[in-house]
Design a binder for these strands. Structure first.
Length: 584
RNA sequence: GCCGAGGUAGCUCAAUGGCAGAGCAACGGUUUUGUAAACCGUAGGUUGGAGGUUCAACUCCUCUCCUCGGCUCCA
């Protein structure tokens, strides 16, 4: 049995107290589910009216009263039939549904918890008394809609989220960390550092990369393209639009029709903005006949693509409708699959390390669930590819969670997950084994004996989609990028206009060394210009005046510790070039 | 898409039915600076858009677009 942490018991008990408070406020309330979650709990309710933010305060006070009253959590077992009747009498239709589900699963008994007026179907465990909940260490945080049983087709209930801790100190610490997190939000920093802009006249979910952001993007792109080339990838360029028939063959049309921009009709043909690169690259593979001697073939592309997300799902650079994926497809023989997959893993780990986020990620094996209509139907191939995928991950010694039902429709995935600054998990990178597409597109190679064989295809990314990865990088570094990624690596500030010429000289020298530099010759005070440069999180500020000019030196102010160090120009260039090369 | 909260100058925010404002940024000038904000001035708005109520609308109502928090979905 899963070990239940003490804090989880506290949180879940607090959820019950919330439910009791809601029942006090709305006697006709119907209850959904109310589990403990990270940092707190939630409870879903079907209520006679919509909750407003002010209700949270009222409910919090009611909860405090219940805690003060120190009511006992009474636990009792009941037969399924008994429980069903009891909850039916209470009008708790959602609980009745849950009981029936348990019945179908073969349960004979259910567990009931009672605290004062509130009775709940619940496997527990709970605290003994409501008074054990520290009344000053919880807080109701937000109200949201949530579909019953997480199904869009079901009624939307009202969910109240709360956070709960063992002490007020822990709660305060959590709230403070949330405030800090908001300061790292990539949307806020993106605006402050002028990295990107989303303009409603261009369209929702269609970010514009401003020069500063574009500079970082270019570094990222060059980094991964060069690395891929070193590792034997071949580069392709394919259009962002394609004939819809391409996607009918791939199966994307059937599975994703509603998630694509609608077709554009030209003459008698229909074209769509591509949601994936796969079929385009498949056509490149198919454009010539391949021998087993050529394999593996690795086609890489920084591929722009478009997916019609539901409007409520969009968020800064994290979730967009137009994005650029560092994409690749590897065509190989079944014998080569394992090595290729391990090489992909190695490339990914190399890249994550270079970006400085290798410690932030976790792995997930995304497999198929029971609902087979969601996937291309070939049980044998599915079982095979899922086994290959998990075997390879095991072999690579990677710890992973299993994500049931998270597979792509054409094959299982190994996903790399990362949490954003507010704790929400997203997939940053994915690699997939595809035993289906070769058949659908009639892709083949000629084997040693002159026979046609189906290649295995690995779909993979190494640094993920540029937009999302950028979002994580912004949040990870809070805008203070390492030197190699910084949009402006150095800013030169002449003490007064008398030294502009000397500043220009250094500026030219840095530019010639491909160092991204700026010079601030504005007539603002020195202090003001330094302040602005600090706010822009520029790694190195070079202040130059009379002393420096005479000595052919620069006074280097470092972002990390705000310390200053005077060094020769040559010395500084060597230092920064080394840092850029070593990506520190 | 759904539930909820929002949208006021480039940015951050004020103005609860009665003359749309501040700070920063921008621009012009003075200052020529030694490590996180010099000084003076100027300009900047159909209050997201459309309609309605009213003598009068940033403010109230309806629709719509966009943003944010969740849900669903997802790279």
């Amino acid at each position: 049995m899963k070990k239940i942490e003490k804090i989880e018991i506290l949180r879940h008990s607090t959820a019950h107290v919330l439910a009791a408070a809601v029942l006090g406020m709305f006697p006709e309330a119907k209850f959904g589910m109310g589990p403990a979650v990270e940092n707190g709990f939630y409870y879903d309710f079907d209520l006679p009216r919509t909750l407003i933010p002010e209700d949270l305060e009222i409910l919090e006070n009611k909860m405090k009263e219940i805690i003060k009253a120190n009511i006992k959590f009474e636990q009792a077992d009941a037969s399924i039939e008994e429980a069903e009747n009891d909850f039916k009498e209470l009008g708790q239709s959602y609980k009745v549904e849950l009981i029936r589900d348990l019945k179908e699963e073969g349960h004979k008994k259910v567990c009931i918890y009672r605290a004062g007026i509130f009775v709940d179907l619940c496997s527990g465990p709970h605290l003994d008394y409501t008074g054990e909940i520290p009344a000053d260490a919880f807080k109701l945080t937000r109200i949201s809609g949530a579909y019953w049983k997480s199904d869009e087709k079901n009624k939307q209930l009202q969910r109240i989220y709360g956070v709960a801790f063992e002490s007020k100190k822990d709660l305060d610490e959590y709230l403070r960390s949330m405030e800090d997190a908001k300061e790292r939000d990539h949307r806020k920093i993106g605006k402050e550092l002028k990295l990107f802009h989303i303009d409603e006249n261009v369209g929702k979910g269609l970010p514009l990369w401003m020069p500063k952001g574009a500079a970082i993007r270019q570094v990222l792109q060059r980094f991964i393209e060069d690395e891929e080339t070193k590792r034997g990838y071949l580069r392709t360029y394919t259009p962002v639009i394609g004939n819809v028939k391409l996607y009918k063959i791939s199966g994307h049309w059937d599975h994703y029709k509603n998630d694509m921009y609608p077709p554009i009709k030209i003459d008698d043909e229909e074209y769509i903005l591509r949601p994936m690169t796969c079929p385009h690259q498949f056509m490149i593979y198919k454009a010539e006949q391949h021998s087993y001697r050529e394999l593996p073939l690795r086609y890489a592309e920084l591929a722009e693509m478009y997916r019609k997300e539901k409007s409520g799902e969009l968020s800064g650079l994290m979730r967009v409708m137009g994005f650029t994926l560092n994409d690749a497809h590897i065509f190989c023989t079944p014998e080569q699959l394992e090595k290729e997959f391990l090489d992909v893993l190695d490339l990914i780990q190399f890249s994550l390390k270079a970006l400085g986020i290798n410690k932030e990620v976790s792995f997930r094996a995304s497999l198929r669930d029971k609902e087979k209509s969601k996937y291309l139907n070939n049980d044998k191939l599915w079982d095979e590819s899922e086994k290959i995928l998990t075997d390879i991950l095991d072999k690579a010694g990677i710890k992973y969670e299993v994500g049931v039902g998270e597979a792509a429709f054409y094959g299982p995935k190994a996903d790399i997950q990362i949490k954003n600054v507010l704790g929400k998990e997203e997939t940053i990178i994915t690699m997939q084994i595809d035993l289906n597409s070769a058949e659908r597109f009639d892709l083949f190679y000629i084997d040693q004996s002159g026979k046609k064989q189906r290649p295995v295809i690995i779909h993979r990314s190494a640094i993920g989609c540029i937009e999302r990865t950028m979002a994580f990088l912004i949040e990870h570094y809070a805008g203070a990028f390492p030197v190699w990624l910084s949009s402006v690596q150095v800013i030169i500030i002449p003490v007064s206009e008398k030294f502009n010429e000397y500043g220009e000289k250094i500026f030219e020298e840095l530019k010639n060394k491909d160092i991204r530099a700026e010079i601030d010759k504005s007539s603002e005070s020195l202090g003001k210009r330094i302040r602005e440069a600090e706010k822009q999180k520029i790694p190195y500020i070079l202040v130059v005046g009379e002393k420096e000019e005479k000595a052919e030196s620069v006074a280097v102010r470092m972002r990390e510790n705000k310390k200053q160090e005077v060094m020769k120009i040559k010395e500084f260039i060597e230092k920064i070039e080394k840092e850029i090369k070593e990506k520190i």
